[in-house]
Simulated assay, not measured.
Amino acid sequence: MNSPSAPSRIAVVIPSYKVTRHIAGVVAAIGSEVALIYCVDDACPERSGDFIEANISDPRVRVLRHEVNQGVGGAVMTGYRQAIVDGASVVVKVDGDGQMDPALLPQFVAPILRGEADYTKGNRFWDLRQIKQMPLLRRVGNLGLSFMSKASTGYWDLFDPTNGYTAISTSVASHLPMDQISRRYFFETDILFRLNTMRAVVVDIPMDARYGDEESGLKVGKILGEFAFKHARNTFKRIGYNYFLRDLSLASFELVAALGLLLLAATFGGWHWWHSAQDGVSTPLGTVMIATVAAVSGLQFLLAFLGYDIASVPRRPLTGVLVPRRQD
């Protein structure tokens, strides 16, 4: 990676909640290209902030504290705000449990410094040989969440949406609605949704699956329903904003036509089928054809809309164009 013109351009945020066994090793592995390291004690019962101040002498480290637990999203937003105030150009989020290799950090930062991306994130699914290290439940859960997230975020070319190894341009981060972003396990996907509404460019960075002795707090069975609801909500919000509020394109009319025709097919066909079943007679061929043509036409319009949506993934970075917004 080409070295940044000033070391202070790169900062790292480490949410520090129950990571006292690993945090010292994580900080020690962060290279000299990083000038600022924010360890966010998110009301940790292990008092991680005190532990870090007592056991880590790295002058780059600064402990930020929450009086009340805000979740990983809240911790990251606190780090983002401080990095913006301190004049960093790029801020990287690394977990404190030792499962993210700090040696990969230059790969996450480089596309942003080159002006090719606004946000980068890890992808553990790029090498099929490596993902065998991932526990089966996590593997299946991440595959399902990846497909749901494509619709809700609009980034159809990305995978592994719950990957928390990320980097962002602070000029873009300063325009995020930080108070509205999900605070807990939906954070990684919700921030992608917010970035899409800004038309920010996001790039996947290949990385290996790496798991230590830390047990994940992300339980698929507990969050499946919550994630499904939030993905559906963000999908409707994104489509409404991108296709009917900010812009009106051919795809907007294709979507309206698709929904109208599919609704017609379901209601008209269903109503006549029910009445025919009640009367014990066959549904007239003409009625069947009307419902069938409406359904097929609706599906064609829906596929056309999806094709447009997939092709409209943001391609022009905002970094270098957006003026950083002042943080209060």
Results as ranks from 00 to 15, higher is better:
Val109Thr: 05
Pro4Met: 11
Ala35Lys: 07
Gln180Ala: 13
Gln180Tyr: 11
Ala228Arg: 07
Asp86Tyr: 06
Phe147Ser: 13
Lys93Gly: 03
Arg81Ala: 07
Ile310Met: 14
Asp127Gln: 10
Thr292His: 14
Gln327His: 06
Leu259His: 04
Leu195Thr: 00
Pro7Cys: 14
Ser216Asp: 05
Pro15Met: 03
His66Met: 04
Trp126Asn: 11
Ala54Arg: 15
Gln278Val: 15
Leu306His: 14
Ala232Asp: 01
Pro4Cys: 15
Ala43Glu: 13
Ile37Leu: 13
Arg210Met: 12
Tyr185His: 15
Val202Ala: 13
Val94Trp: 01
Ile30Pro: 00
Phe193Lys: 02
Thr78Trp: 03
Val63Asn: 10
Pro7Ser: 13
Leu303Phe: 11
Pro59Ile: 08
Leu143Lys: 09
Thr120Phe: 09
Ser146Lys: 04
Gly217Asp: 12
Val26Thr: 03
Leu302Tyr: 12
Ala265Tyr: 03
Ala35Asn: 13
Phe227Gly: 01
Glu67Ala: 12
Ile14Lys: 00
Ile223Asn: 15
Arg62Ala: 15
Thr189Leu: 06
Trp274Ala: 15
Thr267His: 10
Arg129Tyr: 09
Gly71Arg: 05
Pro317Trp: 15
Leu264Ile: 13
Glu188Met: 01
Thr20Ile: 12
Ser171Lys: 00
Gly115Leu: 05
Asp86Pro: 02
Ala232Val: 04
Ser312Ala: 12
Asn2Trp: 04
Pro324Leu: 04
Leu261Gly: 09
Asp213Ile: 05
Val91Thr: 15
Thr170His: 09
Ala83Ile: 00
Trp271Gln: 12
Cys39Tyr: 02
Gly164His: 08
Ala258Lys: 00
Asn142Cys: 08
Gln107Pro: 04
Gly74Pro: 01
Ile37Cys: 06
Gly307Ala: 12
Gln107Ala: 13
Ile37Asp: 03
Thr267Pro: 00
Gln180Thr: 11
Arg129Trp: 10
Ile168Trp: 04
Ala232His: 06
Leu64Met: 09
Ile131Glu: 06
Tyr243Ile: 03
Ile131Asn: 11
Val90Arg: 05
Ala228Cys: 09
Pro45Glu: 11
Cys39Trp: 01
Pro15Tyr: 03
Lys222Val: 06
Arg81Val: 02
His275Leu: 12
Val296Tyr: 00
Leu113Ile: 07
Arg194Met: 12
Lys93Gln: 05
Arg114Gln: 09
Val13Gln: 00
Phe305His: 06
Val72Asn: 09
Arg316Lys: 14
Met178Leu: 14
Ala43Trp: 03
Val90Lys: 08
Tyr211Trp: 13
Val61Asn: 01
Phe193Cys: 09
His22Ala: 14
Val293Ile: 10
Leu128Tyr: 09
Gly87Pro: 01
Tyr119Gln: 01
Ile37Pro: 03
Leu318Phe: 05
Gln82Ala: 15
Gly25Ile: 02
Val288Met: 10
His175Asn: 12
Phe159Asn: 14
Val68Phe: 10
Val13Gly: 00
Ser16Ala: 14
Phe186Asn: 02
Gly79His: 03
Ser276Gln: 05
Arg138Val: 01
Phe187Gln: 05
Ala11Ser: 08
Ala257Glu: 05
Ser149Lys: 09
Arg184Ala: 15
Arg316Pro: 05
Leu192Glu: 06
Gly154Leu: 04
Ser32Pro: 08
Lys219Val: 12
Gln82Pro: 00
Ala294Ile: 04
Arg199Glu: 15
Asp41His: 04
Ala43Asp: 11
Ser57Ala: 07
